[in-house]
Computed example of a mutant assay.
Amino acid sequence: MSSALTDLFPHPIVQAPMAGGVSVPQLAAAVSEAGGLGFLAAGYKTADGMYQEIKQLRGLTGRPFGVNLFMPQPEYPGAGTGSTGAAGAALPSAAAVEVYANQLAGEAAWYETELGDPDSGRDDGYDAKLAVLLDNPVAVVSFHFGVPSQDVLDSLRRAGTLTLVTATTAEEALAVQRAGAAAVIVQGIEAGGHQGTHRDNPETDGTGVGLLSLVAQVRETVQIPIVAAGGIMRGSQIAAVLAAGANAAQLGTAFLATPESGANAVHKEALTNPLFVRTELTRAFSGRPARGLANRFMREHGPYAPAAYPEIHHLTSPLRKAAAKAGDAQGMALWAGQGHRMARDLPAGQLVDVLNAEIAAAKTALSATDEIPEEGAAR
C-alpha cells in the first residue's frame, strides 16, 4: 500500500458512505477519531448540503475523512421507445416507468402522498460537487456507479485527494486502475445498499461474486490497493479479507446500528428483528439492484420494477419518506448487508476498538495455527 494510504489506514477499518441520511458528520467523526476512516455520503444531497456537512465534520474532528459521490447516469439509448441495447437487454423507457407508477398508485393512496417526479435529474449535482471538493479538498473521495474520467481523478490528485472507485468484478477493477484511481473498493454480492456496478444490466442481477473470491480475483488482476466491502460485521472477517489480499475493509451495516448513525430508529431495530430473516437484491425502490431486508414492498413490487435508475428512485422517494414517518418498516427501503443479524448496538468509536481487538485476536490465532507442526514432523 502507498505511504499516503498507509497514513489513512493505520487500522484497516473504513466506514461505508451510506446515502439517505445515515452517514452523518457525527458518525464519520466518531469513526475517524477512533482511528478508522469516516465517510460522508454526498449522494442525494445538493452541493451546498454536502459542503455544509463537510464544514460540520471538520468542526468535530481534525482527522482524515472521505466523501462519496454518485456518478452521473447515462441517458439510455432509445429511452421512451422500448428498444434494446447491444446485448439485447430491454432498456428502460418512459412507458415502463409509467406502468410502474400506475402500480404504485395504491401505495401513494395508502400513505396519503404523491409519487415523485421520475425526471428529477440524472447527474446528482456531480459537477457542482466536484467543484466544491476541488476548492475545499478532503483526504479521500470515492465514486459509486462508474469510473470518473482520468481528468477528474488527476485534478483531485493534484488537490491532494486520494481517489477510490467501487468495482464489482475483476474487469471493473482493472478499469479503475487504468483510469488512475489510487485504490479500488471491491464490493461483494453480500453488500447492503446499491451494488456499484459500472453498467446496469438486468441480465446479471444476482450473479455477483462473494467477497472473498472477488478479492482474490481482483488481487491477481490489479496492483493498486484494495478496500474490501460486503457483509463484514466482525474483526475476524476483516482479518480474512486482509489475508485474501485486501488492504482495508469497508463496513456499512455494522455502523448503521450505532447511536451516531442517522438511520431511522425503525431501520436500526429491523436489523436484528426476527421478523426480517433475510436480505434480497431488489430494484423496487430505485430501479437499480440494491440489497435490503426483505419486506412487503419488495415482495409486491420488486418483480415488476424496471431497470430505470434514478427515475424509480425519484418516483418512490415520497413513499419511502411517508413510510418512515409512519414507522412502517414494510414500506421502507431497509438497506442492509447479509450479516445484518450480527449488528451490535455500540457507539461507533467503541465498535472500531472492538473490531481492532477482534482483528488482533484473529491474527494471533492464525499465527498459532501456523506454528503447529504437521503430523509426523520433528518436534
Rank of each mutant, 00 (worst) to 15 (best):
D7C: 00
D7G: 11
D7W: 00
L8M: 08
F9P: 06
P10I: 01
P10R: 12
P10T: 14
H11M: 13
P12Q: 06
P12V: 05
I13W: 01
I13H: 01
I13L: 15
V14F: 14
V14N: 08
Q15C: 15
Q15H: 03
Q15V: 02
Q15F: 04
Q15A: 13
Q15R: 05
A16R: 08
M18F: 08
M18H: 03
A19E: 15
G20N: 05
G21I: 05
V22H: 07
V22T: 13
S23K: 00
S23C: 11
S23M: 01
V24R: 14
V24C: 10
Q26I: 02
Q26D: 15
Q26T: 13
A28Y: 11
A29D: 08
A30Q: 06
A30F: 02
S32G: 06
E33W: 00
E33F: 00
A34G: 08
A34Q: 03
G35F: 02
G35I: 02
G36M: 04
G38C: 06
G38V: 03
F39H: 13
L40W: 02
L40D: 01
A41H: 06
A41N: 12
A41W: 04
A41P: 13
A42Y: 03
G43E: 14
Y44D: 04
K45T: 11
K45I: 00
T46C: 11
T46A: 09
T46S: 15
A47H: 08
A47V: 09
A47Y: 02
D48S: 14
G49H: 04
M50Q: 13
M50F: 07
M50Y: 03
M50C: 13
Q52G: 04
E53M: 13
E53P: 06
I54F: 08
K55I: 07
Q56E: 15
Q56G: 06
L57T: 13
L57F: 04
L57N: 12
R58F: 07
G59V: 10
L60K: 14
L60A: 09
T61S: 15
T61A: 10
T61L: 04
T61G: 08
R63D: 01
R63E: 11
P64V: 04
F65E: 07
L69F: 11
L69R: 07
M71A: 11
M71T: 05
M71L: 15
P72E: 12
P72D: 06
P72H: 08
Q73A: 11
Q73S: 14
P74G: 09
P74L: 05
E75L: 14
E75H: 07
Y76S: 14
Y76L: 12
Y76M: 14
P77G: 06
P77Q: 07
P77D: 10
A79Y: 15
A79C: 12
A79H: 13
G80F: 12
G80K: 13
G80D: 08
G80I: 05
T81D: 04
T81M: 13
T81P: 01
T81W: 05
G82M: 11
